[in-house]
Design a protein around this nucleic acid. Structure first.
Length: 355
DNA sequence: AAGTCGGGGAT
DNA sequence: ATCCCAGACTT
């Protein structure tokens, strides 16, 4: 889609559906836009509104902010988090006050100030000064990765560079402030991270992610370096006929509905469960830890081997458990690591001639 | 390129 | 519970 058409459709949508009643959208000035942009870094709109109003009531101008003490500035920031933002805000206010209260009018000079990066500088210049400058915040990243079907994590330098280029290609020469606001509104209200409302989107006809049904896959999340490790204990319990105890897993979650070994978060829960089931065990043997990799985590499991010493109380098992001959487990469709564990320990035909 | 800062909302 | 949010800065 040509940039002119994208801008036209986006701005037409913004005129009807865009947010125009936020506190920092009234009495627009470089100071108020700057303050709002800093407060909105990594912070959601609903959380900022009250802080912004209290802040501009106490510090109506950049001069007032510069003349205040840092401790009072921090007091008005308390609860917003990322307190380096408040310290940088105060420092930058003093720099600007020393410049006769005038904000720099270039991206280079603005982003040289403490706490102002490239995107914040672009937002200030486009919204407060009417300059044709692009931004790339979380909303615009999400909108553009989807619209252009950009693969890869946006935090990666290569991907971010490409997104900056796309962002600048779509930035108009006219209505620059409205365009910047519109892109953020689109990302915040329609092109949301989960369950985007694509049918209401003004640029759906050019969206690559919508066309390829990839909206739920984009933008790609930060790649996990080391997968989280989840540790569990598997009880490998045999009765005196050498049958193995299997349990049906809950219908949802990993291995949903499959038969598997009873699983516990730790040794104590295993003991408690045996007590509750009226299982009297032999002295348990712990096998070395095994690992099984899933796409989203690593399962570390420790098999605990034991033999049942008392007769089975079938009433308590209530059909959620079953005792299976080791030679028959292959017909059961067990989870792969469980099957491997049982085969390795009970189905090796090395010395079970007399059984 | 990766780590840090932070309270709060969404899921 | 985890992930993410109108990011910027340091290591």
């Amino acid at each position: 889609m040509p940039p002119e058409q994208f801008q036209k459709q986006l701005l037409a949508w913004f005129d009807i559906h865009g947010r125009k009643d936020l506190p920092w959208q009234q009495n627009i000035s470089p100071y108020r836009v700057w303050l709002s942009e800093i407060m909105l870094q990594q912070t959601q709109v609903v959380s900022v509104i009250a802080y912004f109003n209290r802040f501009v009531t106490r510090f109506p101008t950049v001069q007032a902010l510069a003349e205040a003490g840092l401790d009072e500035v921090l007091q008005h920031w308390a609860g917003l988090g990322y307190y380096a933002r408040a310290r940088n805000l105060h420092k930058t206010a003093q720099l600007i006050a020393g410049n006769n209260g005038e904000f720099p009018q270039t991206v280079e000079e603005l982003s040289a100030l403490p706490g102002i990066g490239r995107s914040t500088a672009g937002a200030i210049l486009s919204i407060a000064c009417g300059q044709s400058q692009s931004i790339l915040d979380g909303n615009v990243k999400r909108v553009l990765t989807r619209f252009h079907g950009v693969r890869g994590w946006p935090g990666e330098t290569k991907v971010a560079t490409r997104l900056w280029r796309i962002s600048s290609e779509y930035t108009p020469q006219k209505r620059c402030g409205d365009y910047t606001q519109a892109m953020m509104d689109l990302g915040a209200t329609l092109c949301t991270r989960s369950k985007p409302r694509c049918t209401s989107c003004p640029v759906i006809d050019g969206c690559e992610a919508y066309k390829l049904n990839l909206t739920s896959q984009l933008p790609e999340p930060k790649p996990r370096k080391t997968l989280p490790v989840k540790q569990v204990f598997f009880l490998v319990l045999q009765d005196r006929q050498h049958r193995l105890l299997l349990e049906r897993r809950p219908p949802a979650g990993i291995w949903g509905g499959l038969w598997s070994l009873p699983e516990f978060a730790d040794r104590q829960q295993l003991r408690d469960w045996c007590l509750q089931q009226d299982y009297q065990l032999s002295e348990p043997t712990e096998l070395p830890v095994h690992r099984h990799g899933f796409s989203h985590y690593q399962l570390e499991y420790i098999p605990i081997l034991a033999t049942l010493q008392n007769p089975i109380n079938y009433v308590m098992e209530a059909n959620s458990a079953v005792w299976y001959k080791p030679s028959d487990i292959h017909s059961l469709g067990l989870p792969a690591p469980v099957k491997r564990l049982l085969q390795h320990n009970y189905l090796e035909d090395h010395d079970d001639k007399n059984d």
